[in-house]
Computed example of a mutant assay.
Amino acid sequence: MDVARVQRRLGVRVDGAFGPVTLTALLRKLGAPAGTAGPLAGGVGSLEGAVILDSGLRLAHFLAQAAHETMGFSRMIEIWGPTPAQRRYEGRKDLGNVQPGDGFRYRGRGIPHLTGRDNYRRFGSLIGVDLEGQPGLAAEPAIAMAIGGAYWTARRINAAADRDDVEAVTRLVNGGLTGIDDRRRHLARAKAILL
């Protein structure tokens, strides 16, 4: 990725280093609220670890998925109805939801929205945070970004992003094609800045 070119497009200091200032400006350009962009950008190191920053195309796909999952970076917690689908979280052994209240306790949080006790345990372990014991931490912006980087790596999403296959990336993130048109719109916006 030509970081200096991206920085010029964003109107930030051109130093060729993709750090929190550049990511904050990029997130703002993609619609993140001012109060969320900076704290999210504090997790930029997790994107380096996930090798997302090695490619503008990877970063565009990551940010497009993140934007959709979080309603434009404004919701780090799933809106709870509960809907019929959300009611089905309760008691789902495949998610590790084995105790009463686990469905709500381990509802979607972070980037992407993690669901289920097992995912909170697994990704918390990967990033070194007790998310199972303190699930609310998954909604904190820097931790949400770290979850996103760990999830991206664990699901091996870089290969699909490198092929520019938004449907494959979406299936790896979401399990289906929910919101594919919105994800495509976010991807086009991110590509216009990053590529």
Rank of each mutant, 00 (worst) to 15 (best):
A144I: 02
R75Y: 04
H186E: 14
T115L: 04
D94M: 02
R156P: 02
G133L: 10
A160C: 05
F62P: 07
A34S: 14
D181M: 10
D182E: 15
D162Y: 11
Q99T: 00
G31R: 11
L59Q: 08
K93F: 00
V98E: 06
V6M: 09
E167T: 13
S46N: 07
D15I: 04
G148H: 07
V3F: 08
H113T: 06
G110W: 00
Q65E: 14
G124N: 14
G128F: 05
L23P: 03
L95Y: 15
R105W: 02
A32C: 12
V98F: 00
A64V: 06
K29P: 01
D164T: 08
R5S: 14
L177P: 04
Y151T: 01
R8M: 07
I77V: 15
Q134C: 08
D2F: 03
G72S: 11
R105C: 00
S46V: 01
R88C: 00
E78L: 04
Y89H: 05
H113I: 01
H68E: 07
H113M: 12
R185L: 11
R184Y: 02
I52F: 04
V169D: 13
P141A: 08
E132Y: 01
R117L: 01
F73D: 11
I77Y: 02
R163C: 04
V173I: 15
G56H: 05
